[in-house]
Write a protein that binds this DNA or RNA. Structure first.
Lengths: 124, 124, 124, 124
DNA sequence: GTGGTCTAGACCACC
DNA sequence: GTGGTCTAGACCACC
């Protein structure tokens, strides 16, 4: 089951939060080619959202080619392994650049960051 | 002068983007205790925003204790060095945890991440 | 229905007057946990105020933890009985201290004040 | 010396706060007929206000007949004992009515209020 | 329908 | 000049 951390107070629209959660599961291969997604109504019930909001999620994911809907049989994941691998790398590099930029902006030295990373990586 | 990268298309409200930019300059000590901020109207003109929007930025920053305004004489930075140091560390640790969680969620191994960090840290 | 005595001429901002009126009804338990407040637009119409002004009232009451708003479904009262009881007492004691201080400052004797209170209390 | 509790954050304009403080001293007979008031500039310096603001105070107090200014010799208190006595009583009665109304609005019983008053009156 | 953000522009107290 | 309040009215996400 997909893990949704919906944050009501966030300025990010709910439908985008839901979309990101599904996308993350596709990219991390918890959801795979051909997997069935919950129905709009079912997911709306689970997340306590209006079905319109969930419909918007599926509609935009379909537009972007990550899932595919058929009348009467719901939505299924539809995505190439090669596309996922590219996405993964571009996501993680962008995130890391972001982090390093912030760190340098706050005045942290390479050594401090390296130590911190070492510590947190081994905590896990 | 504060660097503002306002993103009109972002779901993050403009006033929060401006607020974050100022906060970043306070935390990174580009803005220091006692420094005068541009007047509401002046900043509004620079950023091509409505004065009300900038007023909201200053008002909420004041509520959170980072700046202080006086009738007739504008806003000034008002923040303790010790508070900044704590903030810095908590920000960078939270960002890093976020990043590492995403990385592990996407299935990247420690080694891969470590190599990537090494590469990007030395690029700079 | 909440009773609003808005005084246009007062130096107290309109939004604070409205806020105080609502707060008084919460503290005096005319408004109770879970009660729905009128929508921003409805209340603005009733009080002949701008919706922004009423929004500010609700926003600040929410910040202080007295009411809670949800997108699409409006604001509701959200306050613990125990908090109300404490508030009541602290309000009435502060008001009374204020009054007694003024009275003593103006040179009224205990006896005079006591008689006056006795008279006014029985008038009611 | 007059005691000024100026509250910068209050919505009550500063000039009205200063005016009230002076008026209270006149009514409580700490300032008496003929007493010299500090000069506009002197008072402005003490209160860290702009001289314009203090000038407004004196100007409106003069308009209302409580003080009188002469070119070259500053302002003096000018008020009849009978007027003060009437003022005193009307002030204290209005304050008390206000207090009792709030108390009854908050649901406090006569007995509770009486006890509270008894307690606070004897504290002093 | 609901609240949240935003613009344009006014008036006030204070400097 | 400065900030604080307020109106009129727009557009968006969500119900």
């Amino acid at each position: 089951m997909i893990k949704f951390n919906i944050n009501e107070a966030s300025p990010v629209p709910l439908y985008q939060q839901v979309k990101q959660a599904i996308l993350l599961d596709i990219v991390s291969e918890k959801l795979n080619e051909g997997d069935q997604l919950p129905s709009i109504r079912a997911l709306a019930k689970i997340l306590k959202l209006n079905p319109n909001t969930v419909a918007k999620v599926y509609y935009t994911l379909e537009e972007e080619g990550f899932i595919e809907g058929k009348r009467g049989s719901g939505y299924r994941v539809k995505v190439l392994k090669s596309r996922i691998d590219k996405l993964k790398i571009s996501i993680i590099e962008a995130e890391l650049k972001d982090f390093l930029e912030k760190a340098s902006c706050l005045g942290f030295k390479k050594k401090y960051i390296n130590d911190l990373i070492g510590r947190l990586l081994n905590d896990k």
